[in-house]
């Protein structure tokens, strides 16, 4: 074979072998553990930290609230729906109070605005859902008559 052709063949084979070897080294260690992806990635995602806790954790301390909440109309609403993400509070209740968490009443301009974030009247809402006119809250503070943990008004 001519020198030119043989040199080209040699160069190409060297390049291909180099490529194959380098590729082997560049594949991440857990790639292909479960499929065409990094197996480690599943563990990384599964181990991300929680910001919301579970409702039952709240009642380890807040028994009084539980007693009201469990029998009232708001029992379908989990604690963190109105108090915000409080995983940090369950870990260290003394240090982290979490009063300013998103979704908590403190992040709304007033308690009326907070209640209206769910209960304002709207044509788009299901009819069975209790809704109030904004005017109803103009002169009244919701918590004067309603206990948020047990919203039914006792007569």
């Amino acid at each position: 074979m001519r020198k030119f052709n043989s040199s080209i063949l040699v160069i190409l084979s060297v390049l291909i072998i180099l490529f194959v070897v380098m590729r082997l080294f560049m594949i991440p260690p857990t790639f292909g553990e479960f499929g065409w992806y990094r197996g480690e990635s599943v563990r990384e995602i599964a181990n991300q930290s929680h910001k919301f806790a579970d409702t039952y954790r709240c009642f380890e301390c807040h028994i009084k609230e539980y007693a009201y909440w469990e029998v009232g109309g708001h029992s379908t609403v989990e604690c963190e729906s109105c108090h915000g993400a409080l995983k940090a509070h369950t870990i260290n209740p003394e240090e982290y109070k979490g009063y300013g968490e998103f979704l908590s009443p403190n992040t709304y301009p007033s308690i009326q605005a907070f209640c209206l974030s769910c209960h304002s009247e709207s044509t788009s809402k299901p009819e069975s859902f209790p809704q109030v006119k904004v005017s109803h809250t103009k002169y009244w503070n919701c918590t004067t008559c309603h206990n948020p943990h047990y919203p039914e008004v006792e007569r």
């Binding site: 001519r2 020198k3 030119f4 040199s7 080209i8 160069i11």
Partner: peptide, 12 residues
Amino acid sequence: LTLGDYDVSEKA
């Protein structure tokens, strides 16, 4: 670029 092959005979 010629890979050291300087053969310019008609056949090559």
